[in-house]
Simulated assay, not measured.
Amino acid sequence: MRFMVIVKATKESEAGVMPSEKLLADMGKFNEDLVKAGVMLAGEGLHSSSKGARVRFFGKERSVIDGPFTETKELVAGFWLWQVKSLEEAIEWVRRCPNPFETGESEIEIRQVFEAEDFGAEFTPELREQEEHLRVKIANGAAL
Score class of each variant (00 low, 15 high):
residue 13 S to N: 10
residue 68 P to V: 05
residue 85 K to E: 14
residue 20 S to H: 00
residue 135 R to C: 08
residue 12 E to M: 08
residue 61 E to V: 04
residue 71 E to P: 02
residue 73 K to Y: 15
residue 36 K to Q: 10
residue 77 A to S: 09
residue 136 V to S: 08
residue 18 M to T: 12
residue 122 E to G: 15
residue 70 T to E: 15
residue 6 I to H: 00
residue 112 Q to S: 06
residue 60 K to H: 13
residue 111 R to L: 04
residue 89 E to H: 11
residue 46 L to T: 03
residue 84 V to H: 00
residue 27 M to H: 02
residue 12 E to C: 06
residue 31 N to V: 01
residue 63 S to T: 13
residue 85 K to G: 15
residue 51 K to C: 09
residue 133 H to Q: 14
residue 140 N to V: 04
residue 88 E to M: 06
residue 13 S to K: 03
residue 47 H to A: 14
residue 117 E to F: 03
residue 81 L to S: 05
residue 144 L to A: 12
residue 102 E to C: 06
residue 17 V to R: 08
residue 77 A to E: 04
residue 132 E to F: 11
residue 100 P to T: 03
residue 7 V to E: 02
residue 19 P to K: 07
residue 38 G to H: 06
residue 58 F to S: 15
residue 134 L to K: 13
residue 73 K to P: 14
residue 16 G to W: 09
residue 61 E to S: 10
residue 94 V to P: 03
residue 48 S to R: 12
residue 2 R to H: 14
residue 109 E to V: 11
residue 21 E to S: 01
residue 31 N to E: 04
residue 56 R to T: 14
residue 91 I to V: 14
residue 78 G to H: 07
residue 121 A to N: 13
residue 79 F to G: 12
residue 98 P to N: 00
residue 106 S to C: 02
residue 5 V to K: 03
residue 64 V to A: 11
residue 108 I to T: 03
residue 103 T to Q: 07
residue 113 V to E: 14
residue 110 I to V: 01
residue 90 A to T: 14
residue 50 S to Y: 14
residue 19 P to N: 11
residue 96 R to N: 10
residue 130 Q to P: 08
residue 86 S to P: 07
residue 128 R to G: 13
residue 65 I to E: 14
residue 132 E to G: 11
residue 63 S to E: 13
residue 84 V to F: 01
residue 112 Q to M: 08
residue 135 R to N: 09
residue 113 V to Y: 04
residue 57 F to C: 10
residue 54 R to C: 05
residue 86 S to V: 04
residue 140 N to S: 09
residue 123 F to T: 03
residue 47 H to F: 12
residue 7 V to K: 00
residue 140 N to I: 03
residue 38 G to W: 07
residue 134 L to F: 14
residue 119 F to T: 02
residue 43 G to A: 08
residue 128 R to K: 15
residue 127 L to Y: 06
residue 8 K to V: 01
residue 44 E to K: 13
residue 67 G to W: 04
residue 134 L to T: 14
residue 19 P to Y: 09
residue 128 R to V: 13
residue 95 R to N: 10
residue 20 S to F: 00
residue 60 K to D: 15
residue 13 S to L: 07
residue 65 I to Y: 11
residue 86 S to H: 06
residue 141 G to H: 05
